[in-house]
């Protein structure tokens, strides 16, 4: 995580790589703060994505088998309101500047990229549950439970 955004619990912080405009926000609620949780079967992550609009194709989430998660998104132009034709000249801009960004981090273990349930909550938190990948056992008796 970007040094400027460091919070109070450095030892719990997963290594998170911010790229693009997510790396430039300084004062406002930062994009790319990550929480990670573990259950018996799955990992949970929460990523703060304040100000990200849920436009079609505007946000994607790559899940890799080894647990790597990469979130790509675009911060919309702050001078343009949704559903409005007016354009505003921004005199103060402390939220993330517009542009594409990437948030990358690793879950604690391998996962099955197909078994992913993302929820982009209305409060700007992206919440994802990914099922752990537990094979082998080879016999197929017990799918990962």
């Amino acid at each position: 995580m970007d040094a400027g955004n460091n919070g109070d619990h450095p030892r719990l912080k997963p290594p998170v790589v911010l790229d693009g405009t997510a790396n430039e926000g300084r004062a406002g609620p930062p994009i790319g703060i990550v929480d990670i949780g573990v259950s018996e079967d799955a990992y949970l992550f929460r990523v703060a994505l304040p100000g990200i609009r849920k436009d079609p194709h505007s946000l994607s989430c790559d899940i890799e088998r080894d647990g790597k998660v990469q979130i790509h998104g675009v911060v919309a132009d702050s001078g343009i309101l949704e559903n409005s034709s007016s354009v505003y000249q921004m005199s103060v801009q402390q939220l993330c500047p517009p542009g594409p960004f990437t948030v990358s981090f690793n879950l604690p273990g391998p996962v099955d990229p197909r078994l992913f349930k993302p929820t982009f909550r209305a409060d700007g938190i992206l919440e994802g549950v990914v099922i752990k990948f537990k094979f082998p056992p080879k016999d197929g008796q017990s799918p990962p439970t």
Binding site: S60, C61, V111, P113, R114, F116
Partner: peptide
Amino acid sequence: PPKKIRWV
């Protein structure tokens, strides 16, 4: 599982 899936 496949190596990577992109969710959009």
